[in-house]
Design a protein around this nucleic acid. Structure first.
Length: 202
DNA sequence: TGAATGATGCGCT
DNA sequence: GCGCATCATTCAT
């Protein structure tokens, strides 16, 4: 049952589409998470696409493993993994079951539940990076495999689409840097710092 | 303002 | 063992 406020939770069909489309359309959408303390939400302003076994940068490039198997499953599920010994990254699985693809959520603007976010202070930079975002929300591998159609973790359309969208190579990779599969809201100051200016001033 | 680096643990070869 | 879809800090310009 939808609340009377007109909350539009994205259906599974939204994710069951080409990953580049999903990555772009997620910009401006609200990431919503019911933490133990209450409801958290943030406006997504930066995403990256990872598409199939032919994408050298995709975790699925070497086939299915215990770690990446959620990516091979049905669309509309959360793929959360642990990286660099101390961070987690949040992804949304896309495309048909059996085809491994996902969108990494890289940055967002804090909205609801700011007092509940696990950060020294909450401002426009609090969620400006994938590791910072998951840490502030308290997301970790316990949340790997959660359905985004459930009420615990989901995305809703608040009609906050960006006016203009930029793209660039994906961040932090040694392979797969030729594709420009990173997308971000050009007018947001919550986008992650890395190479931000390079592509915008084109 | 930007480049280099250390922290830190797990998955995979 | 090595490398990693990161980040905060340090040091150099």
């Amino acid at each position: 049952m939808m609340p009377a406020t007109g909350l539009k939770k994205l259906p599974r069909d939204f994710y069951d589409r080409p990953t580049l489309i999903v990555a772009r359309e997620l910009l401006g959408m609200r990431l919503c998470f019911c933490s133990d303390g209450g409801m958290l939400s943030a406006r997504i302003v930066e995403t990256e696409a990872y598409i199939g076994e032919d994408d050298e940068a995709c975790h699925a490039a070497r086939g299915m493993t215990a770690r990446n198997k959620v990516m091979f499953g049905a669309p509309g599920f959360a793929y959360v993994y642990f990286i660099y010994g101390m961070y987690h990254c949040l992804n949304f699985v896309t495309e048909r079951e059996g085809y491994p693809a996902a969108v990494l959520i890289r940055a967002a603007e804090p909205c609801d539940g700011r007092a509940l976010m696990l950060a020294p202070k909450v401002d426009r930079r609090t969620l400006s990076g994938p590791g910072k975002l998951t840490r502030a929300f308290g997301l970790d591998r316990k949340h790997n495999g959660l359905s985004l159609i459930d009420d615990r973790l989901f995305v809703a359309d608040y009609d906050e689409s960006p006016k203009s969208i930029g793209c660039s190579p994906r961040v932090g990779l040694s392979k797969g840097t030729e594709q420009e599969w990173r997308f971000f809201d050009l007018e947001s100051d919550s986008v992650s710092q890395y190479r931000e200016a390079k592509r915008i001033t084109l």
